[in-house]
Amino acid sequence: MMSGSPESESNPTPALELIDITKRFGGLTSLDALSLAVAPSEILSVIGPNGAGKTTFFNVITGVYTPDEGDVLLFGESIRGVDPHKVARRGVARTFQNVRLFQNLTVRENITAAMYGRTNASLFDIVFRTPRARREERENEERVLDALSFFGTRLQGYRLDQPAYSLSYANRRRLEVARAMATGASVLLLDEPAAGMNPKETQEITEIIGRLRDERSYTIVVIEHDMHVVEGVSDRVIALDHGVKIAEGSFEDVATHPAVIEAYLGRGSAARK
């Protein structure tokens, strides 16, 4: 169902749907009855001040945490409490706020490693180099180049065989996106893809997010603090504060929403404006 070809836009089932999700850590309610739906091939941005529950939101979807209440649906099927690697196999891939590449693996190996879930060669196949193992090797090679071609020449050529730790910061972020693509997912969760990038690189990553949807029909959820990125890519924006959805709509709607301004700047700021 997932691999490579997400549902067409006419499909009424949301790609991703959260129903009344609550997640508590002891006395702290990190997500409070959060409901939202992302349509296939939609780009949804999630904003909110620090500690609003944005990363918890990703962790609940990807199975790091099981929500205390509520359900998570992926194309209509529940993925609540499913292990992270199975969620990834079913089509949700993510990047991390503090880039978590496999530092000592090369660019090529980082991407190939992420294709574990779409390949089937057993240890027997590998040790005896059966036709299946060889066929998969060839396919993997093509997929690596395909995922990297998305980023122009930045990660190609000699860089393919360099360890991830030797890449520039921006290239590491790009590689993380390429690695997520390589899992074969149709839903991408990007956690602050532009953090630590200069304005030119930020512009670039904004365009890449757009192209991921336009050319590859990915459904994308972006957590981002950089409002240029949010403005540039979002079909829809959701603002979280203390685990509660305080605003939803177009970028302009949310950016000017009194509750959002209050959450960022404190009570009274909206009134004085």
Partner: peptide, 24 residues
């Protein structure tokens, strides 16, 4: 260099990231 070798090496690098990249 196979999928198993890479999966082992990636979980040695970062087990959480490996999980999110479809590796059991």
């Amino acid at each position: 260099f196979s999928r198993h070798g890479l999966a082992w090496r990636s979980l040695g690098e970062d087990s959480l990231a490996a999980q999110h990249m479809t590796i059991p």
